[in-house]
Every structure is written in structure tokens, then in C-alpha cells.
Amino acid sequence: MKLLTHNMLQCTVKGVKNGYPLKIEAVEFEDKEAEFNPDFLRHVFPKIDWPALRDAAETLGYSELPPQVDEAMLEDDEFLRKFHHALMEIHLEEGTLVCPETGRRFPVNKGIPNMLLNEDEI
């Protein structure tokens, strides 16, 4: 699972007010090369929750992302490369996603998060 997907996922268990961002407990992660597309990055940038992305990348051992960002940085190629790497190339393979509010755990196996809910959680 890319960090792009993680950045969009949230916990929707019944009664949860803020199930975002899901905390990552990583067991295994890997880098997979992805095509660099600056236009997509510029387009997706406003939709990204930056602190969540930065925390997630750090958990998976990548701490090159700056703490503060703004639109102007999207013209900088070096920043775009880092952004691209964190967003598209770091994959969480095995581990758990944890809801920040309830502590509900969603296991991740072979890169697929199990987001199935029990009857009483819907």
C-alpha cells in the first residue's frame, strides 16, 4: 500500500468522530519504483494531509520531508522528487493501521489493509 492511499484512508467505525490519520505499526515495508509525474504531484498536493504524510514516511524510515510546505515549493524539482518518493514509492507490506481515537486495529497483509468491520461497528 502506497502512502498516498494511507493518506486518504480513515477509520469509519460507528461513533468515531476523528478516525484520521491511522497510525502505522510497520513490520515490513519496501520501496517500489514508480513513474515520476510532476503534474500529478502538483494536482494532488492540495489534497494531501502533510503532517500525516510526513509522520507516515518517518515511521517507514524516510525522514527527508520538510515539516513546513507551501505551493511555491512545487516548482522545486528536488522537493518534488522527495514528495514523489514518499507518496508513491514507499509501500507498507506487513503491519497494522491503528485508529487514533478508538485504537481499533486494521491488519495489513501482503500490502492489503483489512478494513472489514464487525456488525456492531457499522
Binding site: 502506497k2 498516498l4 493518506n7 486518504m8 480513515q10 494531509d49 500490502g111 492489503i112 489493509p113 472489514l116
Partner: peptide
């Protein structure tokens, strides 16, 4: 989903029941 993995599908996959609501943030 297992077959999707074998076929090396390019997208990210989620084990999820759409009848329980989509677990994503707003406007993505």
C-alpha cells in the same frame, strides 16, 4: 484480491465491504 496480487495489479487494494461505507477522507 489474491488473484489481483498474483496478476500484479497496479493499484492499491483494500479488503472491504462497500455496504459498510467507504473509509476515505473527503473529496479525494
Amino acid at each position: 484480491l489474491g488473484i489481483a496480487l498474483e496478476r500484479e495489479a497496479e493499484g492499491d487494494l483494500l479488503l472491504h465491504d462497500m455496504g459498510s461505507g467507504i473509509p476515505f477522507r473527503n473529496a479525494v
